[in-house]
Amino acid sequence: MATVKFKYKGEEKEVDISKIKKVWRVGKMISFTWDEGGGKTGRGAVSEKDAPKELLQMLEKQ
């Protein structure tokens, strides 16, 4: 499965696309949330040019 790689608060992170729940556009950035388990929700953002095609497809479906 595809993953999204991004930096959050200076830390490199990687999230499996299948865990992503919500995707939206903020200017030229793609923001998203995912389920971290245990009732926690993670947040992240990646530039439109660095976003994997699967993430962009999720954005178009909404």
Rank of each mutant, 00 (worst) to 15 (best):
M1V: 10
A2F: 03
A2I: 13
A2W: 02
A2C: 13
A2V: 13
T3N: 03
T3K: 12
V4N: 00
V4E: 00
V4M: 02
V4W: 01
K5S: 02
F6V: 14
F6A: 03
F6T: 05
F6D: 01
F6R: 00
K7A: 03
Y8C: 14
Y8K: 02
K9Q: 15
K9H: 15
K9R: 05
E11A: 06
E11S: 05
E12P: 04
E12D: 10
E12G: 03
E12Q: 07
K13H: 08
K13N: 03
K13Y: 12
K13R: 11
E14K: 03
E14M: 03
E14F: 03
E14A: 05
E14V: 09
V15E: 02
V15L: 06
V15G: 01
V15H: 01
D16P: 12
I17M: 06
I17N: 01
K19S: 10
K19D: 12
K19V: 10
K19A: 06
I20D: 00
I20T: 02
I20P: 00
K21E: 13
K22L: 12
V23M: 11
W24Y: 15
W24Q: 14
W24E: 14
R25F: 12
R25E: 11
R25H: 09
R25N: 09
R25C: 15
V26F: 07
V26P: 03
V26H: 07
V26K: 09
G27A: 15
G27I: 06
K28H: 07
K28G: 15
K28A: 04
K28L: 11
K28N: 13
I30R: 00
S31H: 10
S31L: 05
F32T: 01
F32E: 00
F32M: 03
T33W: 06
T33C: 15
T33A: 13
T33S: 11
W34M: 01
W34C: 01
W34A: 01
W34E: 00
D35M: 05
D35I: 06
D35E: 04
D35L: 07
D35W: 07
E36G: 03
E36C: 12
G37E: 09
G37R: 04
G37N: 06
G38A: 11
G39L: 15
G39V: 10
G39T: 07
G39E: 15
K40P: 09
G42E: 09
G42H: 08
R43K: 13
R43H: 13
R43M: 14
G44N: 03
G44T: 08
G44C: 07
A45G: 14
A45W: 11
A45R: 08
A45E: 15
V46I: 10
S47A: 14
S47I: 14
E48C: 15
E48P: 12
K49E: 06
K49R: 10
K49A: 14
K49Q: 08
K49D: 11
K49P: 09
K49H: 05
D50I: 09
D50L: 10
D50G: 10
D50F: 09
D50R: 11
A51H: 02
A51Y: 02
A51Q: 03
P52L: 04
P52M: 03
P52D: 03
P52N: 04
K53V: 10
K53W: 09
K53F: 06
E54Y: 04
E54M: 06
E54Q: 08
L55Q: 00
L55M: 09
L56R: 09
L56E: 06
L56V: 12
L56Y: 11
Q57Y: 09
Q57R: 05
M58T: 05
M58C: 14
L59Y: 11
E60I: 11
E60Y: 05
K61Q: 08
K61C: 15
K61D: 12
K61T: 12
K61A: 13
Q62E: 14
Q62H: 12
Q62F: 03
